[in-house]
Design a protein around this nucleic acid. Structure first.
Length: 560
RNA sequence: UGGGGUGUAGCCAAGCGGUAAGGCAGCGGGUUUUGAUCCCGUCAUGCGAAGGUUCGAAUCCUUCCACCCCAGCCA
């Protein structure tokens, strides 16, 4: 036994443990059931981690099943993207991908079964009439005039529906349950509706499609799902889920459990809103690095591990909660800090000329570990020459700046070049507008890897690159997409909360030579700047584009 | 309003009648050739409120309050 306290079980883990111990379940089967009508986002990641994670933890299996019961909004493109996202997160679904549409024949048989049992009927009420008949919270509904049709008539009518003899909206198949139920879902819910559209999986085979309610529990039963986990808003559907399981000759009895979906502040996650951001060009596609989509976060530089850690960290409960994005950001920062190789990149370069370069006792290159506490990641070479670049913000002519407030280069004073020499600022060359165009410095010999002689106190450590062989690159600084913690709360228009500075494109940045080997999505820490990765879309052999995943934690200024 | 669900720190979250875990954020300090990391310390006389039961209540009972969800031929 390890002495680290184990994480307490969440309520689902407690239920599963109980079911396993009590012999109610022999092998846990879960499923992740997306509808292929949009791209996956961070909220789905929670569900994915939950379902796959539970299966993993208890030695079970998790299926990937597309809930494709509505051809109206679904597309193959989404199916492909979803598979890609789930795989990227690092999960393997059991067997082949499943589709609700794989079971359409079976659902049809079961519909027939209910009709024969007198538990379902074809209803010709219009949508508006149906709504009226349904009643209201305090008002019980009225029975449809078609409710008491004979089995034979229902069979015939349903066959006509299936055969395409009715148009969309003319009739539906409904379960005969209870029009006075306080639970609206039990007031004779729809089982089948007519949709004369081809389906991405079944083509034109069907013109009637089962509803979510008529499909979900039965799919679970067919697949032997033991614990069917969904979000809170489906809790009201559970009695209906159970009604189908009880009234149909299904091969198993899955149970439904609900948990609270993930909400993040400074973020919107509704499919409709994300689609609007894309369609109206507020962002650069579904995988824009500012999007909370899996593909967007991936392009931004989030790692699968960081997302999984996050989902693990926030817990699983039934209380509606909004997590601080800071917690998500902490997870990537932590993962990247532990694993990302270090590099230097000057974002706003100012040329530096080392006037006594010939006194350098190291010509050629400095050597630095790729990671300060991971020697196994190897070393990198930092060429060093007469001309360098440092960041404009790392130099000041103001000699009154205190050492505590400004730990960088000041005219006439010393600073350490990360991994190289201590230098002293001697002179600033300016253009006619007073902008510094070049900085002349001198190096202190013998200070590579060594402390400077007595009396020389560098104010701090700054990053730099060698002018001769550094790489020109573009750096994209991303910030939160919204300035408002709750962009879509109340009757606010979330578009008004868009952060106009959520993307800043910096060109002419100078990266250390070794970064030429960077692979798209591979994370690096640009020392003193943050975590970056090569953009998978805009980077090419002759143009390097780096995305800032997240900045370094920045405490200074708060306490000085 | 009928039904369903939820209230523990700024944000999450353990707790399951024996005297409020942990994480994020914050604050104070130490180490540091990254203002990062790391390390140490600190952070609820209090569990939505009020009553009650009990030697003992965040946990049990009663009433009340607040917030979320449902009332699609969406999922």
């Amino acid at each position: 036994m390890s002495d680290t306290p184990s994480k307490p079980l969440n309520f689902l883990e407690q239920i599963i443990t109980r079911d396993l111990d009590g012999g109610i379940t022999s092998k846990v089967i879960t499923r992740f059931p997306p509808e292929p009508n949009g791209h996956l986002h961070i909220g789905h990641a929670k569900s994915i981690c939950l379902n796959f994670g539970l299966a993993e933890r208890f030695g079970g299996e998790c299926n990937l099943r597309f809930d494709d019961t509505n051809p109206e909004k679904e597309e193959q493109e989404y199916v492909d993207a979803i598979k890609r996202d789930v795989s990227w997160l690092g999960f393997n679904w059991a067997g082949e991908v499943r589709y609700a549409s794989d079971y359409f024949d079976q659902f049809y048989e079961w519909a027939l079964h209910l009709i024969r049992e007198g538990k379902a009927y074809v209803c010709h009420l219009s949508a508006e009439e149906t709504k009226e008949y349904r009643g209201w919270a305090t008002k019980p509904g009225k029975d449809s005039p078609y409710r008491e049709r004979s089995v034979a008539e229902n069979l015939a009518e349903f066959e006509k529906m299936r055969a395409g003899e009715y148009d969309e909206g003319q009739c539906v198949l409904r379960a005969k349950i209870d029009m006075a139920s306080p639970n609206m879902n039990m007031r004779d819910p729809m089982l089948y509706r007519i949709r004369k559209q081809s389906h991405h999986q079944t083509g034109d085979k069907w013109c009637i499609y089962p509803t979510y309610d008529f499909a979900h529990g039965q799919e679970d039963a067919i697949e032997g799902v033991t614990h069917s986990i969904c979000t809170l808003e489906f809790a009201d559907h559970r009695p209906l889920y159970e009604w189908f399981i009880d009234n149909l000759p299904v091969p198993a009895e899955p149970r439904q459990y609900e948990f609270a979906r993930l909400e993040l502040n400074y973020t919107v996650t509704s499919k409709r809103k994300l689609k609007q951001l894309v369609d109206e060009g507020h962002v650069d596609g579904w995988n824009d690095p500012r999007m909370p989509t899996i593909s967007g976060m991936r392009r931004r530089g989030y790692t699968p591990a960081s997302l999984r850690t996050f989902c693990e960290m926030i817990g699983v409960t039934k209380s509606g909660s909004t997590i601080d994005v800071g917690q998500l950001e902490y997870c990537v920062r932590d993962d990247l800090n532990n694993n990302a190789p270090r590099a230097m990149c000057v974002l706003d370069p100012i040329k530096v000329v080392v006037q006594n370069f010939d006194e350098a006792d190291f010509s050629g290159a400095m050597v630095q570990p790729a990671h300060p506490n991971k020697p196994e990641l190897g070393e990198r070479e930092l060429p060093f020459g007469r001309e360098l670049y440092i960041d404009r913000a790392d130099f000041s002519e103001d000699t009154t700046l205190s050492r505590k407030k400004f730990k960088r280069l000041v005219m006439g004073e010393y600073v350490r070049l990360r991994g190289a020499y201590v230098i002293k600022a001697e002179e600033a060359v300016k253009d006619s507008d007073g902008n510094i165009t070049e900085l002349r410095v001198s190096l202190v010999p013998g200070t590579v890897g060594e402390n400077p002689p007595e009396g020389i106190k560098p104010r701090g450590v700054i990053h730099w690159v060698n002018a001769e062989d550094c790489l020109d690159c573009e750096v994209r600084l991303y910030d939160r997409l919204f300035n408002d913690a709750a962009p879509d709360a109340g009757d606010k228009n979330y578009l008004d909360a868009i952060n106009p500075e959520s993307l800043r494109i910096l060109s002419g940045c100078k990266a250390e030579k070794g970064l030429a080997q960077a692979q798209p999505e591979q994370g690096f820490q640009f020392e003193r700047e943050g975590y970056f990765c090569l953009d998978s879309q805009y980077s090419s052999d002759d143009k390097l584009v780096f995305n800032r995943t997240i900045g370094l934690k920045d405490n200074w200024g708060k306490s000085v």
